[in-house]
């Protein structure tokens, strides 16, 4: 029964902030749905409410109007099995790399040898093995972000939320991270919802790209990316890829944000 319905269903969701200085309509109304295992990328101009959408979808912030269902369950409050990665890695300086990755298990009182092995395997898959007992500050920015991805995936969440996870990294590291995340996403079969400023990154990683307008954020396009996975970085030079990035760029040009 669950398999016939969409994995995530968002219906006319809106978010409005009421502050002493007035009403800020940040998002929507927005409606879309997507299936299990898909990677959905969101691109849009700064301040268009992308992050708000992610937080509302993950149940971290309340919505003002509308309905969200995940696996046919109504979302009210934080979802139970999600992993979140923000632009900042948000590693805790007072814990070693391994202890940082184990945090979600620890918060649920579920640290055992099995979960430790899982943490080590994730770190290895992300190319950070051998640093388990280091302190976070001894790692480079790219490595820190990989640790925070391992932390997000530790408990095998059914959904992964990434909020501009690679914005703070240099171009080369960013390319590398794209390849790693694609591999991991396929391996872990985790439904992924991610926000980015980079059109190329969105197209490279996603099965679907949702293009948002300026604030209040609305969906102005919803594009299937049919390029088979796994993709190599050189796919970005293919005509099929370029067609899609051009289509997105035209939206932004029309909206006057580029």
């Amino acid at each position: 029964m669950l398999d016939t319905a969409s994995f995530v269903d968002v219906k006319s969701v809106e978010k409005t902030y009421f502050t002493p200085s007035g009403v800020v309509h940040a998002l929507g109304p927005i409606s879309f749905s997507f299936d299990r295992g898909q990677t959905v990328g969101i691109v849009g101009p700064s301040g268009c409410g992308k992050s708000t959408m992610l937080k509302v979808l993950a149940g971290l912030e309340d919505r003002t109007r509308g309905e969200i269902t995940v696996q046919s369950r109504n979302v009210n409050g934080p979802l139970d099995d999600v992993g979140v990665v923000f632009q900042k890695d948000l590693l805790l300086d007072w814990r070693t790399v391994l202890e940082n990755v184990l945090l979600p298990a620890e918060l649920r009182g579920r640290v055992d040898e099995k979960i430790r092995t899982r943490a080590r395997n994730l770190l290895e898959e992300l190319g950070v093995s051998g640093f388990e007992n280091n302190q976070p500050w001894e790692l480079s920015g790219g490595m820190r972000q990989r640790v925070s991805i391992a932390r997000a995936l530790l408990l095998k969440p059914s959904m992964l939320f990434l909020d501009e996870p690679f914005s703070a990294l240099d171009a080369l590291t960013r390319d590398k991270m794209n390849v790693i995340v694609q591999r991991l996403q396929m391996h872990e079969e985790v439904t992924t919802f991610f926000i980015t400023h980079s059109i190329a990154e969105a197209v490279f990683l996603s099965d679907r790209v949702i293009v948002m307008s300026d604030r209040p954020g609305r969906i102005i396009d919803d594009i299937e990316v049919g390029i088979p996975k796994p993709r190599t970085l050189s796919v970005r030079e293919e005509p099929e890829f370029i067609d899609i990035t051009r289509r997105i760029r035209i939206h932004f040009e029309k909206a006057g944000v580029l």
Binding site: L60, L79, D80, G83, V84, F86, L90, L92, E106, L107
Partner: peptide
């Protein structure tokens, strides 16, 4: 953002206080 992150990990008030 860190507080929201641990919220997403379903940390309760007490855990947020002690661990963060």
């Amino acid at each position: 953002d860190l507080l929201q992150l641990v919220k997403s990990m379903r940390a309760n008030r007490w855990q947020t206080m002690w661990k963060i």
